[in-house]
């Protein structure tokens, strides 16, 4: 092969386009300036850098990621060990007060009036008679000194006490074979957990922290504390408990957080 003769490029078109296209679109072509093309290329380059953030919220991408998240829910359900206990700690390790977390800052907490508050019951429950705070305080208490793990990455040891949720569900005649337990809260917040987690021995309806009645920012008068879920599943300021077989997206799952959120 002669060194000076190059074979035709693979990328060169076999036939040239009809040149009349150039005259027909003369006006458009005149507006194409090198400066604008360069500027356009720059923005295109910048867009590829940003694509990591932008592409996530595109409907098909988000739909795919949520399908994976739902698959991960099922995997977590299989991994869940109903009788396996989370590590517990000594009273000396307890952080006081607990760390505040909600979807708004602590100043915006709207305290619940414990005198008029009632716990409502709904769904697959035989005895839907509401409960006052005083009635709940009279139930047998269970104390848990467990680690609270936030999805953000921080954690602390907390000392919670109140009635065991499984005992409470049995007492009110809830359908323990149902799939979900929903917690509807005073701050328009709803979270739900799977029945297996609700029946776990370390899942309680907490009324006290470190031996004292829970204060307003931490869920007075009633909140959920379970050792097997991330922090955001532990609903505070509960106003109603509902047992159901129907899955409804919850406050955080609507935002794209994982629903099962098991730890």
């Amino acid at each position: 092969m002669s060194p000076h003769k190059h074979p035709p490029s693979l990328f060169r078109p076999q036939a040239l386009p009809n040149r009349s296209v150039l005259t027909e679109n003369k006006k458009l072509i005149d507006t194409v300036s090198r400066r604008n093309v360069l500027r356009g290329t720059l923005s295109l380059g910048a867009l590829t850098l940003l694509s990591g953030c932008d592409v996530t919220e595109e409907a098909p991408v988000q739909s795919f990621l949520r399908t994976v998240s739902a698959w991960n829910d099922r995997v977590q359900g299989v991994l869940f060990r109903p009788d396996h206990l989370a590590p517990t700690f000594s009273p000396a390790q307890v952080v006081k007060p607990p760390r505040f977390n909600a979807y708004y800052p602590i100043e915006e907490v709207k305290p619940v009036d414990g005198a008029t508050w009632q716990l409502e019951l709904a769904g697959r429950i035989a005895n839907k008679q509401p409960w006052t705070a005083q009635q709940i305080y009279q139930l047998p208490e269970q104390e848990l000194i467990i680690r609270h793990i936030c999805v953000e990455g921080w954690d602390y040891i907390g000392q919670w006490s109140g009635p065991n949720l499984k005992n409470f569900l049995q007492r009110i005649g809830a359908d323990l074979a149902a799939k979900y337990v929903y917690f509807h809260c005073n701050d328009d917040f709803t979270e739900s957990i799977d029945m297996a987690a609700a029946l776990h021995p370390q899942t309680i309806l907490a009324t006290k922290y470190a031996g004292d009645i829970i204060t307003d920012p931490f869920g007075f008068p009633l909140r959920l504390r379970t050792s097997t879920k991330l922090g955001y599943k532990n609903a505070k300021w509960i106003r109603a408990i509902e047992v159901s077989n129907t899955f409804t997206e919850t406050f955080w799952s609507k935002q794209g957080e994982n629903w099962f959120a098991g730890i």
Binding site: L65, V151, E152, G256, N258
Partner: peptide
């Protein structure tokens, strides 16, 4: 979302996902 080293935040353009929950999804 909760840095380990106080001085080290990764610039947003190097991260994947709009918010932390999207990072978790990915």
């Amino acid at each position: 979302d909760d840095v380990i080293l106080g001085f080290l935040h990764v610039p947003d353009f190097l991260t994947i996902g709009k918010w932390a929950q999207h990072g978790l999804q990915w």
